[in-house]
Amino acid sequence: MTAKEVRWPGKELTAKEFYNKVTVTRYRPEAKFAWSAGEAMSRFLAELQRGRLIARSCSSCKRVLFPPRMFCEECFRPTDAWVYVRDTGTIETYSISYIDLDAKRIETPVYVGVVSVDGASPKMGIMHYFGEVAPETIRIGLRVKAEWKPAHEREGSVLDIRYWRPLRRGE
């Protein structure tokens, strides 16, 4: 680091040494979970299954909180009422991903981003996929609408929305 210190510790291994030469131990944890969805998310998931988006309102700060939560983190008090919001919104930001969960390369890119939802307070939204778009047509500020799975295929999941697509004329 300085004139006093010349030796920098650390024994680098090549990938070949790491995988084939040095002694190692291996471990694959089996960690399986079931998370309780809680009050707000249970209702949110149930409404998704019905093809609707729901939020909670706070009568103190007058915000419509989406995704819904049972307490207002700003006022630090319980939220007051369930409020349906619309299944249309605005692209706040997006990415076009060429990698999967494990950083492996994928052939068909995934359009993903944040949609702020109409009817919720400004900028409040969720992350989701976009469809019926191309690199040239997707943009921040684009107005979009949820493309729902048919009712019988919905199971109470964010995936009950296939993706968000550009608004069509008249919508």
């Binding site: 291996r26 694959r28 979970f33 009050e39 249970s42």
Partner: peptide, 28 residues
């Protein structure tokens, strides 16, 4: 302070399953 809305119908409460997948190689 408690929530003013509270689900009493247990069938309306949901859970969500998932595995936390991970795989390790530890050098000795």
């Amino acid at each position: 302070m408690t929530f003013r809305d509270r689900t009493t119908n247990v069938d309306a409460l949901r859970s969500w399953r998932g595995d936390v997948e991970a795989d390790y190689i530890y050098t000795t």
